[in-house]
């Protein structure tokens, strides 16, 4: 901190600290803290409350009528009853306008078995997407980094980036057009005579989770390729040739030389792909058109904008954060990389 003040003076340093504090507190920590808080309470609404208030009011009317009729010594007793009833009505009404919050883990523990199975399923799907994306991307990253000539590599890079400038929704939507019932692939199959539109014997690709996988890998391919490319690129070519000269097979060279060197990149690629897949709302929403099998992210969306239960929604959202955190910690442990190696 002293070194900052020495260079930039107290005024500028103060501005830097203020801005960072604003970002740290108001954009990162407090929102997460409030989301956690929201997930830890629920409002226990008494369904009978409205009826109880109505009944109390009708009782009050009767008592007031009694009070008018009453004479002499019974009057104070009735008046006392009226006061007591008014106090009761006031408490009931305050419960209705500002219901008491009940703190606890109920939003987490009351997850229905259906929602829980979707939660687990989404994690497994995201893991599958991560593994598949690695298998698909590794050869490409290696080729660009080590095999292609510089001009060729630049061209391949450009080819990777162009699909990325198109919006994620449109990228996914293109796959919808390809895999749809009367989409490109089914039309091709029909032309081959394998399926028939008239008999509705088309292949229902969109009902398989695989179609979401294809679109997810397509949508986030760059996040796997770039980190791996960056680390493989720093590998000395002599090491590859040495491995070759010593008689290492292609597989062995990769397993013992390239992959150990590329570990940080692989860890980052896997973390990003897993996080993006498990948290993607757009891709499953478009590919399944909200019909076949929700993903957990879609459930979260529904809690906020359809059933309007923000407490449960916050609990689901926080569960997702925990899953990502655990995944990151596991990857850091398995690949033996530190937080500084991540997100480079």
């Amino acid at each position: 901190m002293n070194s900052l003040i020495r260079s930039y003076g107290k005024g500028l340093t103060g501005i830097f600290i203020t801005l960072t504090a604003f970002w740290l507190l108001l954009l990162i920590i407090l929102p997460q803290a409030f989301m956690l808080d929201q997930s830890l309470w629920s409002i226990d609404k008494d369904d009978q409350l409205g009826m109880k208030i109505d009944r109390a009011y009708s009782d009050l009317g009767l008592l007031e009528y009694d009070a008018q009729q009453a004479t002499g010594d019974t009057k104070p007793a009735v008046q006392a009853k009226i006061e007591a009833l008014k106090v009761e009505i006031a408490t009931l009404e305050s419960q209705e306008t500002d219901p008491p919050r009940e703190y606890g883990l109920q939003n987490y523990s009351r997850m229905s078995s259906l929602h829980f199975s979707i939660f687990v399923k989404s994690i497994f799907y995201a893991l599958a997407v991560t593994v598949l994306a690695f298998v698909v991307c590794y050869p490409v990253a290696f080729t660009i980094a080590k095999l292609a000539t510089p001009q060729r590599a630049a061209l391949l890079m450009l080819g990777l980036i162009i699909p990325y400038a198109i919006n994620e929704l449109l990228r996914v939507y293109a796959w919808l057009m390809i895999l749809d019932y009367q989409g490109v692939i089914n039309s091709f199959l029909a032309w081959m005579g394998v399926v028939s539109f008239a008999d509705k014997t088309w292949v229902p690709f969109l009902e398989y989770p695989g179609s979401v996988f294809v679109a997810l890998i397509y949508a986030y391919v760059l996040f796997m390729i770039f980190p791996i490319y960056n680390t493989v690129d720093t590998l000395d070519k002599n090491q590859l040739e040495a491995a070759q000269d010593l008689g290492g097979s292609v597989f062995l060279t990769h397993w013992r030389v390239v992959i150990p060197h590329a570990k940080p990149g692989i860890a980052v690629g896997c973390i990003m792909t897993f996080m993006l897949s498990v948290g993607s709302y757009s891709v499953p929403q478009i590919m399944t058109r909200g019909k076949s099998g929700d993903w957990f992210s879609q459930l979260i969306y529904r809690q906020f904008f359809e059933t309007q239960n923000w407490n449960v929604g916050a609990a689901y959202a926080f569960s997702l954060v925990l899953v990502c955190l655990i995944f990151i910690l596991i990857m850091m442990k398995v690949f033996k990389v530190g937080i500084r190696d991540i997100s480079k």
Binding site: L27, F34, Y301, R340
Partner: peptide, 27 residues
Amino acid sequence: TNLLYAVLVSPLLIPGIILGISTLIFW
């Protein structure tokens, strides 16, 4: 320093929907 670094890059490692939700709740 490392802790501060971890917190400041954490938004990159959290799903986008979570950032939207937490902002919506807090504000």
